[in-house]
């Protein structure tokens, strides 16, 4: 087994992201700050090493979002995202 076997996808972050943003987020698009790829959060590659979930661009591997559980809530590192596009249409 190698690290690739541990890869999940953005669906795995659906619960924490819904808790943080107050809405379903796996259909929201993340624009990668590394290469500009525009993809639904549910389709990103995800890794969960235990302290939180890292969502990576499936094109260039940039860490777009890192969601860590901390004592009083969440720490969300957004350095790797140039934008999130959230549709409010049903």
């Amino acid at each position: 087994m190698d690290d690739n076997d541990l890869r999940l996808d953005g669906n795995a972050a659906a619960g924490p992201l819904a808790e943080i943003f107050g809405r379903e987020m796996t259909m929201a698009a993340a624009v990668c700050g590394g290469c500009g790829t525009d993809a639904p959060i549910g389709s990103l590659m995800a890794y969960d090493p235990g302290l939180g979930i890292i969502l990576r661009c499936s094109t260039c591997d940039t860490a777009i979002l890192r969601v860590s559980r901390v004592r009083s809530g969440y720490w969300v590192d957004v350095r790797g995202a140039s934008a999130l596009r959230i549709s409010t249409a049903e």
Partner: peptide, 9 residues
């Protein structure tokens, strides 16, 4: 439990 969550899949 909490949910439902997810929408992409």
């Amino acid at each position: 439990l909490r949910g439902p969550v997810g929408g992409y899949f």
